[in-house]
Every structure is written in C-alpha cells, then in structure tokens.
Design a protein around this nucleic acid. Structure first.
Length: 597
DNA sequence: GTGAAGGGCCAC
DNA sequence: AAACGTGGCCCTTCAC
C-alpha cells in the first residue's frame, strides 16, 4: 500500500492498494464504516469487451483505490477475497452513481455480487418525479444537491496504461469520495418526499437487472434469418404491386414507363393517392386508412406494404448485429426507471417490442438442454384498479375465477354469463382496457364501431355497474388536478405541470395522473418480484433473461425447470401481495422451449 | 455529413 | 367540450 500526497487543489487523501496485505488492511478499515463511497474505472463501456482496472471505496476521509492489474486473474485471485466479502455484505452501504454499470463489471470481473447499494442516479430520478428538464449525470447531481463542481475530464483517460498517473488516481479516488456527502443530502430529500420505500425497491433490483444484462437472451439466428427471408419475399412483391397501383395516378407513367415513388415517403405516397382520387385523411395512420381499404385496393396494398416494411426494418437483420460474439447472446440495455411511471424501457435492441407473432417469438428459444420458464401477471392493471377503487362488483368479477371480460360483460349488460355474446364480451374487454388510460366515449365508439350515443350509453351502463370504480376515477382525477401530484403504492411520485387555463392540457394531465398510479404500481410489483426471484434463485441454474412489463422470463437447466417455475410464481404473487391486499394477484407460469410456448 | 422533429408502428 | 397511458426504432424531411 503506497501513500500518495494529494495535490493541494484536490484535497484528496487516498491509498493505492496493490497487494494482499494492502487489501486486508484496507478492508479492515473500510469495515468500520456503515457507508462507503463506491466507484470503478474500466477500459471500455462493455464488460464483455474491456477490463476492470480500479475499484474505489471511500470512508469520506480515506479513499482506497484497488488496482486489479496487480492481482493476476481478478475473477479468481484469492488476495481479493476480503474485497469480495465487503462488496457482497448488505450491511455495509455502498453509495454509487448509476450502480448498474459498476455492478455488472464487479459481477463479471470480480465474480461477486454487490449488495447494500444506494444509487444516487436512481435517487435523483425519483426525486425529480418526472421532471424531464432535470439531468442526472454525476456532475449534474453533485451540483444540484451539494453545490460542488466535478471535473470529469479523466473519465475518458486511458485506464489500461501499465502505470496510472497521479492525476488519474486522484480523480478516481475523488469520484468515490464525493458520493458520501451526496448520499447525506439525497437520503434526507428522499425521506422528506416520502420516497424512501420506492428508493429501496429500486436499489434492491439493481443486482437482478445487472445480472439479466450480463446473462443476455439467446436468439436462434438461423430461425430469425428464415423468417426474415419470408418477409423479404412478401415485402418485395408487395412493394412492386403498390408501385404499380400508385403509378397509375402519375401523369408520366404512360409515357416513360413506371415513375418510381419512394414508398417510405409520406409526402410522395400521399400525393400519388390524391392523384388517384383517394380522399386521404390528414393522418395516414393504419386505423385511419383501414376504412378506405375496401373501396380503394391501393390503400389495402399500402397497409400491407407498411406492415412488411416495418417487419423488415425494425425486426430484421439489425437485431442479429446485437449478438455479442463472446457469449453468442443479445445483451440489451434495460433502463430501470425508463418512464416516470416507473416502468422499464429497453433498447439496443428493444426486447419489449418484439412482435407477438409466433414466427418472431419462437426465435427466442432455450439453448439445448435448457428450458425457458415464462410467467406473466394476469390482468394486473385491472386488479390494481379493483383494489384501489375497492369496487365490490369489479372485485367479484375477479373472485369468480371466470373469464374476466365475459364476467364484466355479464354484469354490465345484465345477462347470465353463458348468454354473453361475443360482441358484448368484446365491448367489455375494450372498455376494461380503455378506462385504465382514461378513454372517452368518442374514442371508445371509434374502436368498437358504435355511434357516439351508443358508446356513451354503454359507458354509462359500465360505470353504473361499477359505481365505486367510477367514484375512484373521478376522485383520482380531481386530486391529480388539484394537487398536481400522483403516487403509486410504493410511494413513487409524479409531479404534473400544466397550464390550468388550457382545457386540453388539464384533461391530458388528468388522464396521465390517473393512469400513473395504476401503471406505476404494476411496475412496483414487478420490481419487487425481481428481487424476491433473485434471492430464491441463488445457487440454482435459473437465470433472468428478459422482462416485458408484466412478464418475466427465466432460463434454466431442463432438470430445474419445475422448481424454478414454482419459485417464479411464488415470487410474483408474493410481490403482488405486498402492495395489493383486497384482490388476489395472479401469475400464469409455463415451461417452454420457445418464447412462443 | 449530422441531428432533431415528425409520422408511423411495434410492445404492454 | 369532448382526442387513450408508457416506451423505442425506422424512415423522411429539413435545418445547420
């Protein structure tokens, strides 16, 4: 262990740890603290491509900088055992910024978990409560909460150098040291805003998410290409036919052969349609064009082309480029608080928008000898709504154990369950989903083909049946507009900003604010389930590989599948019960070889 | 050339 | 009077 003299300007005291004795002494001193500042330095951004160079842990007075290049293979080096023990110990808090990054590197390059994490990035996002203007980089957060300026210029320096410079080590140490005063400010703020519980919920699922990203998901590239080839043929044929149909409306077509139109250009296609005499609506979205398709075959062809084009571009060759050569799997980026409601978002690629069609889903399969255990929550948002509103009839529809939409149809239209028509069930289903988003009679009429007055009457019947649900939604809307704040069951908060003189803005804020507690509580429950699952899978072959809002996918050895299925279902229902008491939260689990079942 | 905005569409 | 919530990705268009 070498003691370094700090540069006056930085006021940083650190110790550089490069041998076994140093590790022991450092960990001994660090273990006297309840809280530590924590950071890492890496040679790349992707843990499968680069090396982990430094691990920094700070008491606030002293910062220990562990140089992993001094310990041989960092995954196995026995000299690093005390460090691993410290990182895994949940009773010692590690304060880090965007900890998912560090946790992935530690997991992959030190071979251990990191527990007891406080993440200042997630805390900042929670405190900002949906304010999109706030930034959440460490520099921004440090400025906002402790009014200190951070120089991040060394972040892009060469962490692979055989000898690190004084300046590099100092800045590395500083990044860990600054976390402690930051934690102090942010913990107070979380408590004052009633966000302590949701913060713990978020911190607890950092490790599951870090592991999920490292695990990746297996995509059968051969199957994917086979599907892609089919789509290519359809797309080419459809494009050709559409080109012919559209050219008929272009003047030069007869003189110079077919005038090529860029089929992906909104303007060119609209112009061509107008030339053909098609009454093109202001927007050419599919649902606007659909009614015209019967009279104008060219419109039907356009919709067909768009679908094929979407498949080819969004779900084509590009996804195969995300397969990591080291693992042969796809390691997407999951943003834990991807939406202000608390939902995840996913990118590079977005595994949450893979088409539901079997042709696509079946390409995500269990590798040989493995199984996928897949579970999704049954009607979770509606169950949350039933709980929040405490509406007896709505709750009854769930307790019956029957087809939920048929049950609501039976109640709303006052007919016996067995006499519910397919049409009545469909109305009920669309309404059940629509009310979560604050649908109005006009939109409901559009969806169902009902006239405005019939749509209004059906909605009146619906809310007449579920009077407490109606009352809850009204009260929730009133509260959101009056208080400009909405919260989920975990306490997650959304502040609403709107101009009260703008009726449309008020209505939009009301819908958003009414929806947020429902959508967000669903996210709360999923996150809790991830932690419970993580703990119960410890030591088994089960690996979390994907989550899609109300669905969790685990890959495991075929022999473990039954046991994993039980653990998964238990974790999901137990998580639901922590937040929802009046209604059972159900998860449907199945074991499969493919995502498609 | 690069990037933002807008339209469109996939998921839940 | 009235317009269904959340995300990401692809393409075109247009400004710089």
């Amino acid at each position: 262990m070498t003691e370094m003299t700090p540069e006056r300007s930085l006021n940083i005291y650190f110790q550089y740890v490069t041998d076994a004795a140093g590790v022991s002494r450092a960990v001994e001193e660090l273990r006297r603290e309840k809280r530590l500042g924590f950071d890492t330095e890496t040679t790349e951004l992707d843990p499968y491509k680069g090396r982990l160079r430094l691990v920094q842990l700070s008491t606030g007075r002293t910062t220990f900088v562990f140089d992993l290049y001094s310990f041989g293979d960092s995954r196995t080096a026995a000299d690093l055992k005390p460090l691993r023990g410290l990182l895994e110990d949940p009773s010692v808090m590690k304060v880090a910024h965007n900890a998912k990054f560090d946790l992935k590197w530690i997991r992959h390059h030190l071979g251990c978990e990191t527990n007891g994490v406080f993440d200042t990035y997630l805390a900042s996002v929670l405190i900002s409560a949906g304010d999109g203007d706030r930034r959440h980089s460490l520099a921004d957060v440090a400025k906002f909460f402790t009014d200190t300026e951070l120089d991040k210029s060394e972040q892009i320096s060469d962490w692979n150098a055989s000898e690190l410079s004084q300046s590099q080590l100092q800045y590395a140490a500083l990044d860990a040291q600054v976390m402690l005063p930051l934690h102090e400010q942010m913990a107070d703020r979380l408590a004052n805003d009633g966000l302590t519980r949701v913060a713990q919920l978020e911190f607890d699922c950092l490790m599951p998410i870090a592991e999920m990203e490292l695990n990746g998901i297996y995509l059968d590239a051969t199957r994917w290409r086979e599907q892609l080839d089919k789509v290519r043929i359809t797309q080419a044929k459809t494009a050709n036919e559409l080109q012919d149909l559209l050219s008929a409306g272009v003047a030069q077509a007869s003189l110079f052969g077919r005038a090529e139109i860029n089929l992906d250009s909104q303007q060119q296609v609209t112009d061509a349609l107008l030339n053909l005499g098609v009454p093109v609506p202001a927007s050419t979205r599919a649902w606007e064009l659909q009614p015209l398709a019967e009279k104008w075959p060219v419109v039907g062809k356009l919709l067909e082309y768009r679908a094929a084009q979407k498949s080819l571009t969004s779900f084509g060759e590009n996804i195969l480029e995300f397969i990591e050569p080291m693992t042969g799997r796809i390691h997407a980026d999951f943003r834990q608080i991807g939406a202000p409601t608390g939902r995840f978002s996913c990118s590079n690629p977005n595994l949450q928008q893979i088409p539901h069609e079997e042709a696509y889903r079946r390409c995500f399969r269990a590798p040989d000898g493995k199984k996928l255990v897949i579970a999704d929550y049954s009607q979770i948002e509606l169950r949350i709504l039933a709980d929040f509103s405490a509406d007896e009839n709505f709750i009854k529809a769930f307790e019956s154990g029957q087809d939920f939409h048929a049950m609501t149809a039976s109640q709303v239209f006052n007919v016996d369950l067995q006499n519910v028509t397919a049409e009545q069930r469909s109305f009920a289903k669309r309404l059940n989903f629509g009310i979560v988003y604050g649908v109005g009679a006009s939109r409901f009429g559009m969806m169902t083909g009902l006239s405005q007055s019939d749509a209004e009457n059906t909605m009146r019947k619906y809310f007449g049946t579920y009077r407490h649900l109606d009352a809850y939604l009204r009260e929730s809307g009133r509260s959101v507009v009056d208080n400009r704040v909405a919260r989920t069951a975990s306490g997650r908060m959304l502040r609403l900003r709107f101009d009260e003189t703008d009726r449309a803005a008020v209505a939009a804020a009301r819908r958003y604010g009414v929806n947020m507690p429902i959508q967000g509580t669903s996210a709360d429950i999923l996150k809790r389930a991830l932690r419970l699952l993580h703990d119960s899978l410890h030591g088994s072959s089960g690996k979390l590989v994907n989550i899609v809002h109300d669905e969790i996918m685990v890959e495991c050895d075929a022999a473990d599948a039954e046991a994993v299925a039980v653990e998964l279902e238990n974790a999901m229902t137990a998580a639901g019960q922590e937040f929802i008491k009046r209604v059972a939260i159900k998860a449907d689990v199945h074991i499969a070889d493919e995502w498609a079942k």
